[in-house]
């Protein structure tokens, strides 16, 4: 009964909340507008924005030396999570069945497992860094911790359901994923979408000034 609710209505509600919430947040940010820049452009804002969006994937030299672990763990977690989310066979099947209607090649199961290992290691290390480092602990608010723990719980229940033989374990995973989807638009988890905008904004400002940054 509760399983049917999780698998049916709650799923549609959560995915709707997710889509509407994300659109609403992005529209809100865009509608906030920018101050008119009255200076004479010395370079292209557009190319600066595009350059910044991609160049920021490569960390600065000081970052690679001073916080190497955060960098490695960060990439382990984020790349791992994206691969898990979009290229694990059960997820591909689920998305194809529920959303897109078509599927795409998934990674082999062993890649899925290795990726999960990396993502787990990255997430745990990053969260520990967050609570143990005085600076990041002060910078973190409840939202950060809820976001981290939600992602962790979704990943953990997913890993517990790996045998794909017990419906209740799948439903637990799905339920937490739904909670995650509902929570997503109203939290810092939005950075999955807004990083493009923030980087683009910085890049455009710099590009207009003719600065290669």
């Amino acid at each position: 009964m509760i399983g049917e609710f999780i698998d049916g209505p709650l799923w549609y509600f959560s995915i709707t909340a997710f889509v509407i919430g994300v659109v609403w947040r992005i529209v809100a940010i865009v509608r906030a507008g920018l101050k008119p820049d009255l200076s004479i452009a010395r370079g292209s804002a557009g190319s600066g924005a595009v350059r910044a969006i991609f160049s920021r994937f490569v960390p600065e030299r000081t970052v690679t030396t001073r916080s190497r672990l955060q960098l490695i763990a960060g990439y382990m977690f984020h790349v791992g999570l994206l691969v898990l989310l979009f290229f694990a066979q059960p997820h591909v099947d689920f998305i194809a069945e529920r959303i897109t209607g078509f599927d795409w090649p998934a990674v082999p199961h062993w890649v899925f497992i290795v990726t999960a290992e990396f993502a787990f290691a990255g997430l745990i290390l990053l969260w520990l860094h967050r609570v143990l480092n005085p600076v990041t602990r002060l910078l973190s608010d409840l939202d950060d911790h809820i976001g981290s723990i939600l992602v962790f719980l979704v990943m953990l229940t997913g890993c517990l359901a790996l045998a794909q033989s017990h419906e209740s374990l799948r439903l637990l995973h799905l339920f937490l994923a739904e909670v995650f989807l509902i929570y997503f638009p109203f939290s810092k988890l939005m950075h999955a979408f807004t990083f493009v905008m923030s980087r683009g904004y910085t890049g455009a400002t710099m590009g207009r000034k003719g600065v290669n940054a």
Binding site: I113, E117, L156, C159, L160, A161, L162, A163, H166, L169
Partner: peptide, 18 residues
């Protein structure tokens, strides 16, 4: 218990290498 054991086994196997 089978649900718990299955979850334990899969979790144990996945987390072990870490």
């Amino acid at each position: 218990f089978s649900i718990l054991a299955s979850a334990s086994k899969e979790g144990h196997n996945l987390m072990g290498p870490l």
